[in-house]
């Protein structure tokens, strides 16, 4: 692992090609991904966005449970589990991994409010031209939540 501010390719941190150590860590050890056949996962909601022709595609799957909010006493829909798959670059893998961590345990409404900027700041920044990769994960999650709501 490269610890210094200068990446292996010699570019200084902040130039468009450099990934932060957090991005690299999520890329090397992605959280909540699903390996292999996704039909075996019992998803309550599923969303897929992107296009392989453009070089990236993301699938988000969520399991939802109803829980009583101890403060309000109202029942809320909570994201119990998230699994994802992606055909994409390092940025797509890292940002989807980060998003899955952020979304877990949140209500559907607050999960929908996770912004691309929030994912980016969780990762300590993304190269400028890679920003759309984190937007894509965000869109896939929104689409999975919509899918859940359409069926429940």
């Amino acid at each position: 692992m490269i610890k210094s501010k200068t990446a292996a390719n010699g570019f200084a941190a902040g130039t468009p090609w450099v990934y932060t150590d957090i991005v690299k860590e999520h890329f090397l050890n992605p959280r909540n991904f699903l390996m292999g056949d996704e039909t075996k996962y019992q998803a309550d909601g599923k969303g897929i966005v992107g296009n392989p022709i453009c070089g990236d595609q993301m699938l988000m799957m969520i399991q939802v449970e109803a829980k009583k909010n101890p403060k309000t006493g109202k029942k809320e829909s909570i994201i119990k589990d998230v699994k994802w798959k992606t055909y994409g670059c390092a940025s797509a893998i890292a940002s989807t991994s980060a998003l899955s961590e952020l979304a877990k345990g949140k209500t559907l409404d607050s999960a929908l409010k996770i912004s691309a900027e929030e994912i980016e700041s969780y990762l300590g920044g993304l190269p400028k031209h890679k920003f759309h990769c984190s937007v894509l994960g965000h869109e896939a999650l929104a689409s999975a939540i919509q899918d859940y709501r359409n069926h429940h």
Binding site: F33, L34, M35, G36, I48, G50, P52, L59, K85
Partner: peptide, 9 residues
């Protein structure tokens, strides 16, 4: 193999 395993394709 890992990338193919997590791929949507």
């Amino acid at each position: 193999k890992r990338l193919q395993g997590i791929s949507t394709l």
